[in-house]
Amino acid sequence: MARHLTAVPAPADPLALLPQLRAALDGAAPFAVLPAGPPAAVEAAAAVLRPEQPLEDGADLVVVTSGSTGGGRGVLLSAGAVRASAEATLRRLGGPGAWLLALPVSAVAGLQVLCRSIVGGTDPTAPAPGESLAAAVARMPAGRRYTALVPTQLRRHLDAEPAALRALDAVLVGGAATDPGLLARAREERVAVVTTYGMTETAGGCVYDGEPLEGVRVRVTDGGIELAGPVLATGYRLDPEGTVAAFVDGWFRTRDAGVLDEAGRLTVHGRLDDVVVTGGVNVAPQAVEAVLRQHPDVVDAVVFGRPDDEWGQRVVAAVVPMPGAEPDLATLRPWVAERLGGPAAPRELHRVDAVPTLHTGKPDRRGVAAVVTHRRS
Rank of each mutant, 00 (worst) to 15 (best):
V275E: 14
V281T: 14
E262P: 00
D274H: 06
F304H: 15
T243I: 00
E310V: 10
G229D: 11
A290D: 14
T243P: 13
E262S: 14
E289R: 03
F247H: 12
D309K: 12
P296D: 15
D300S: 09
A245N: 11
V231L: 10
L238P: 08
V298S: 02
L238I: 04
D261K: 02
V283T: 00
T267L: 05
G250C: 13
D297I: 02
L266R: 02
P285D: 05
L238D: 15
A317L: 05
P296C: 01
F252S: 13
T234F: 00
G270V: 04
E289F: 03
W251V: 11
A233D: 06
V319I: 06
G250E: 14
G305I: 03
A287G: 08
W251A: 13
V288W: 10
G312S: 06
R237L: 13
P321M: 02
A246M: 01
A233P: 07
V288G: 07
V319K: 01
F304G: 07
R293V: 04
L266Y: 03
Q286D: 02
Q294C: 08
R253L: 15
H295N: 04
V302P: 00
V276G: 00
V291I: 13
V244Y: 03
T243M: 04
P285N: 05
L238C: 11
R271A: 10
D300K: 09
R293G: 01
L272E: 14
R255E: 15
E262W: 06
D308E: 01
V244C: 09
V299I: 07
